[in-house]
Simulated scan of single mutants.
Amino acid sequence: MTKRLSNEVETELAKRGVWLVKVPRYLSELWEANEGNVVGKLKIGEQVKFHVQQGLQQPTRPNEGPSSSKSSVSEIPTEYSFLLHDIKNQTMTVLSEDKKGLDSDMNVKTGKLAIEGRIVKKAECRPPATLKYLKMKQEHIVKNTQPKKQVKLLEKAAVKFKPVSIHPEDLARQKAKKEGAKTYRADRDVLRGALFNAFEKHSYYRLHDLQQLTQQPISYVKDVLQEIAVYNPSPPHKSLWSLKPEYCNYKVNSSSSA
C-alpha cells in the first residue's frame, strides 16, 4: 500500500468548469509528446473547431524510426470538430496528483492531491471524414498488426561472445595454485629447527598449521614430525602433534594449544 503524504486535498479550483474530451489515440500521443507547450487552438462558435498547432514535436512509435514517424504524422488532419454532450444525473470532477519532491519515495507515497474542476461538458473530437484520413487509418492498422519481433536471415553469424571452456581469471587462479604447491624443500635440519621454534610457543599443533608456518610440503613436514613428535589420537588433544618427551626441555603447559 502507498502512504499518503497528507490528508489534505486542495479544493480551490473545485468549482471551475472543465470539458471531458475523447480524442483519437494518435492525437493524444501528439499532445503527450508536446507536454507543456501549445498543441492547438479551440474556436467556439456555432460549431466547436480544434486546429492543431503547426511544428509540433512528433511522437516516436515502437518499431518506427524518425523518418517513418514523420511521414505518418504528416498525414494527420489539422482540423477537428467537437460533438458536445451535456452532463445529466452525474457529478464528475478532475483530480490531480503532484509528486514533485518525493524523489525516491515516488512509488511508495501519494503526492499532493488537488481537485482541478468539475466536468460540465462531454465532447468527442472527430477528424474529417476524408479519403486522406481513411488512408492514414488504414496504414496505422497495418502497422499495429505487424509483430513487434521479426526473424531476420543473416548471411554471417555475428557472435559477440564466444563460449570458452575456462576463463582467463580461472586459468590464472589454477596456475597460481599449482605454483604455490611446488614449495621449495628446505634443508632437513632447517625444517627441524623451525618445528622446534614453533613448539617453544605452543605445545600442540595441527599438521596443517605447521605446514602453513614452515611453508613446506605437508608430506615433508609430516616426515620430519615423526622423528621429533608424536600424534595424539585421543582426547584431550585429539588430532594434534606434540614433541616427544626426550625433546621437551621445558614444562609443558597443557592449556596452550593452537
Rank of each mutant, 00 (worst) to 15 (best):
V21A: 08
C125V: 14
E35K: 15
M136P: 01
V120S: 14
L113Y: 00
N144T: 12
I76N: 00
L27Y: 02
V73E: 10
Q138W: 06
I141N: 04
K100V: 11
F50C: 01
Q54M: 05
K15R: 04
K121M: 09
Q47V: 12
V39I: 10
P66D: 12
L27K: 00
H85T: 10
K41A: 14
Q58C: 13
I87W: 03
H51L: 10
L56R: 00
K149E: 14
L30W: 03
Q146L: 15
V120C: 11
K22C: 13
L20P: 01
H85C: 09
V38M: 09
G36E: 11
S28I: 00
V9S: 00
G17Q: 05
G65L: 05
I44Q: 06
N34M: 08
E46M: 05
K109A: 12
H85Y: 14
I115G: 04
S71C: 03
L13F: 10
S81H: 04
K148W: 08
P62M: 00
G117Q: 04
T60Y: 08
E116C: 10
P24E: 03
T78K: 14
D105W: 10
P128M: 07
I141C: 07
D98W: 12
W31V: 06
G36I: 09
Q150I: 15
N89H: 10
E10G: 00
T145D: 14
Q146N: 07
V38I: 15
V94Q: 07
Q150M: 15
S28N: 02
Q47A: 08
Q90H: 12
V48A: 11
M136H: 05
N107L: 14
K15H: 06
S69C: 10
L83W: 11
Y26R: 03
N89E: 15
S72L: 15
L131S: 04
K148Q: 11
K112Y: 13
L84P: 15
S68F: 02
L102A: 05
E124H: 12
F82N: 01
G117Y: 02
V38R: 11
L131M: 07
E12R: 06
S96T: 14
G55H: 03
L131H: 01
K22G: 13
R16G: 00
N89A: 13
V9M: 04
A123S: 15
K99I: 12
K149A: 09
G17N: 04
Y26T: 02
V48R: 06
S74V: 09
R25K: 09
L95E: 04
Q54N: 09
E124K: 14
K121A: 08
K109E: 11
S72V: 13
L56Q: 06
R126E: 07
T130W: 07
G117T: 06
K149W: 12
K70W: 07
Q150W: 10
G55W: 02
H51C: 08
E139M: 08
K137E: 07
E97A: 05
K49D: 08
H51Y: 15
S69W: 01
S68H: 01
M92Y: 07
E32Q: 13
M136I: 00
T110K: 10
K41Q: 15
K70Y: 03
G117E: 02
V23F: 04
L42Y: 06
L42A: 10
K112N: 13
D103R: 09
H85E: 15
Q57V: 10
Q57D: 09
G17W: 01
K137V: 04
L20I: 00
L84W: 12
I119F: 04
